[in-house]
Amino acid sequence: MTSQGTRRMVFMGLLVALATALHVVEGMLSIPLPVPGVKLGLANVVTLLAIYLYGFRDGLTVALMRVLLGSLISGMFLSPGFMLGLTGAVGSTMIMALLLKHTTCFSMIGISMAGAAAHNMGQLLAACLILQNSALIYYLPVLLLTGIPTGIFTGVLLNSLISQSEKSGMLNDLVRTSP
């Protein structure tokens, strides 16, 4: 394996660990909403970083790994909460990758807001499907609104991280040069 490939693998490992930790900690902050497993979406910051550095596929890997590991750790493996986490993670990863790679008008802030919104929407959709009832749509506005501040917060963090690294060339070693 090339030294760059090794570096990538190591860094990916770090990202997964970080995302999982965030996922578990987030799970412990109890949000007073009756849709179980609904999270703020902070762990998305890591997913977005992975997409930025390595592309959609690796971003998806990080997302799926964090849901898997996170659920194992918090004892929710294969539970319906796990399903919600999956749909949320997949939905947000897809949206964020789409926006990052195919548009230039959004900054990390916009992308992470979209990701947080997609994350919560995905969870809501999964919950409705499991219960075979669309009544939960009552919570749609709240879920959208809570996604916004976390999206902004994580976006700002990523923005500053990236502009810092652009100056210092910090992340250049990690970014895949081949398309």
């Binding site: 501040p149 700002v156 500053s160």
Partner: peptide, 18 residues
């Protein structure tokens, strides 16, 4: 300056949450 602005905005969000 841009960095400081971003940091301030992040702090601002934190303050609002608190």
């Amino acid at each position: 300056i841009r960095q400081r602005k971003l940091l301030l905005s992040a702090l601002g969000v934190l303050l609002i949450v608190l």
